[in-house]
Amino acid sequence: MGMFLSIDTSASGLSAFRLKMDVVANNIANVNTTRTPEGGPYKRQRVVFAPRDTKVRFKSPFLPNVLKPVIGTGVRVLRVEKDDAPFRLVWDPTHPDAIKSGPKAGYVEMPNVNVVTEMTDMIAISRSYEANAMMIEHSKSIFNTALQIGRST
């Protein structure tokens, strides 16, 4: 437990949600991208969060530190993974990336990005970011309140 533990924890949340916001922005920007370097339309990206763990963990059950309840130190981004949901099919035979043959001929595979989902994600992220910022503000005011104890003589 350090002087600024809660501030550091909230700061990790701020960074994580900032990154998630970047990913959502990328998804919305690529809502009509039908051509990617790996082939096929753009796949929606998702962010996987995990608790941040700065301590070394041992698997031995005999080490007493394993059993101690420890306060976490925030969140970290584990990875950015791709959503494998099916693509949207749009009828547009004149599109350069339209499927030429087979039962789906004439259709274009559009990215599996739903703008409405991304917008709600965006709102949730911006509220989470606000919550973390609020947390920092209140940690600050707690710190200042503690200092007031020393100042009032």
Partner: peptide, 28 residues
Amino acid sequence: NIHDVMIAAEKAQLALNFTRTIRDKLIT
């Protein structure tokens, strides 16, 4: 990140406030 800069600045201010309080106590 802009929030990292702001947090560092706030931490600096809080630490300085703390130091000032301790100094005032010492002088008292």
